[in-house]
């Protein structure tokens, strides 16, 4: 009698929901995701991810944000329904993917390097990011090897998202820049509570 494999090598096809998508995609069906938050005051928290067959008016599945499933959906080249949803999706993805870097280098140090990186990159020219950064706080730190290591790691994580948008999701360069810069602006806004501080009259 064959023993069951204790640690099976899994693919999307082993996941109950993703398996269905994979099968239907192979038959030509297209899907989109929608990343929405019922209450915008929750910032990047409380988002729901829904999966829709293109042309259908009802989602096939709705569930709380799940970074693992989202990653699989990106691999399956499933785009968001619209740019707003794609922006939210990548803002949350940036937060999730940068958490390890934040943990590695420490909260305050990470804050400084992040603001430096974005301020000094082409992203600063984007009105959404410029507006966010004008209201963010930072203090200079010594630009030693650790600083550059941290900065390069953040840049790598952001760069990986740009490749996901162009290579996996097939956005053109202009759309990628638009989505990613808005996503970074949303991530920074959320990280430093900028909109909330503005609403409270503190900015």
């Amino acid at each position: 009698m064959n023993q069951p494999e204790p640690f099976p090598m899994t693919t999307s096809a082993n996941h109950p929901l993703l398996a269905r998508l994979v099968a239907e995609i192979q038959h030509g069906q297209k899907f989109v995701v929608d990343v929405r938050n019922e209450d915008e005051s929750f910032g990047l928290d409380g988002y729901q991810l829904s999966i829709w067959s293109v042309g259908s008016d009802k989602p096939i599945s709705i569930f709380p944000w799940d970074s693992e499933i989202n990653e699989e959906l990106i691999d399956l080249k499933v785009r968001s329904k619209d740019l707003e949803s794609e922006t939210s999706r990548f803002a949350i993805r940036l937060r999730d993917e940068l958490a390890a870097t934040e943990s590695r280098y420490g909260n305050g140090f990470f804050n400084r390097v992040l603001v430096d990186l974005v301020t000094e990159s082409y992203l600063d020219k984007h009105p959404d990011i410029k507006d966010a950064l004008d209201r963010a706080h930072s203090r200079q730190v010594e630009r030693n090897s650790v600083y550059h290591e941290c900065r390069d790691t953040i840049a790598y994580v952001i760069g990986k998202r740009s490749r996901e948008l162009t290579r996996q999701l097939d956005y053109d360069e202009t759309s990628m820049r638009k989505i990613l810069s808005k996503a970074i602006a949303r991530y920074i806004d959320n990280r430093f509570s900028l909109s909330q501080r503005k609403q409270m009259g503190l900015l």
């Binding site: 909260n107 990280r191 509570s193 501080r197 409270m200 503190l202």
Partner: peptide, 9 residues
């Protein structure tokens, strides 16, 4: 205070 100060920790 977290919202007002933008504290990340």
């Amino acid at each position: 205070f977290q919202r007002a100060t933008g504290a990340t920790s």
